[in-house]
Amino acid sequence: MIDRNTRKRSIHSAGNLSRSLFLSILGILTFLPFVFALIISFKDIFQYTHHPFKPTFPLMWSNYVIAYKLVIKYIFNSILVSGVSAVFVILLGVFSGYVFARYDFPFKNTLFFFFLALMMIPTVLSLVTRFILVMNLGLRDNYLGMILPYISGGQIMVIFVSRTFFENIPNSLFESAKIDGASDVHMLFNIAIPLSLAIIWTLVIMNIISTWNNILWPLVIINKVELMPISIGLLHFKGQTQSNVGAMMAGYLIASIPLLIVFVVASKQFVRGLTSGAVKL
């Protein structure tokens, strides 16, 4: 009982206050680009030219109208492609990461290094050859033409990260489960994954970001406007002589709303994943 009281008092302790202060300063600085984007999104081309960062009036809500019409055409595609990719990236990546973590087989480490080195090459290297492959598979102008390469590339990072995490789970947990008669798959789903939920949600965030903002691949693989993701749709603003930067910002902000929802959810799950398996004193 004494512990509970001291803990209650310590919420507003000096240590916490100084931490909060420091974090607030960093937080404001980190959030600044967001704020600027918001300010710019209400400017027309003239206001932006004359006052790039100061809020200007009248507010150009028309930017949002233009942006909304544009975004709504493409947002479904982005959600579908990034969503499906993320699901399978996690699935395949976690399965493989588990295998790498808990089992040994010939060429295991060589294979691993190859994967790792592969990740470090700029993907543009194989842009044309991959394009030819996807074209020959008949997947141009097809959602799968985007999804499958995304899964293939994205899973490597998940394999790598989940392997590290699974390796750090005390073997005693697995041993005792084996004694209880649990199968390999059981152990994956009931031990490894629940304990790594936090990391898995972080990986979800990372993967969705990389596929959401990818421009080059959809640009070359998709010709039909109905299939284009939002990253391409928004480029429309950039390609002109004096681009309507305000509308572009509005577009990016609207397009990030689904992302925001996912990340807030993921962030909450992240905490749940950590606190559910941990010890409570």
């Binding site: 995490f165 750090n168 789970i169 005390p170 005693s172 947990l173 005792s176 009931n190 031990i191 629940p194 304990l195 790594s196 559910s276 398996g277 941990a278 010890v279």
Partner: peptide, 17 residues
């Protein structure tokens, strides 16, 4: 991730269900 063996095992058996 490192969790204390004994206590976690209890939590984990409950979670299996």
């Amino acid at each position: 991730m490192q969790t204390h063996g004994v206590v976690a095992k209890e939590a984990f058996t409950m979670k299996i269900i």
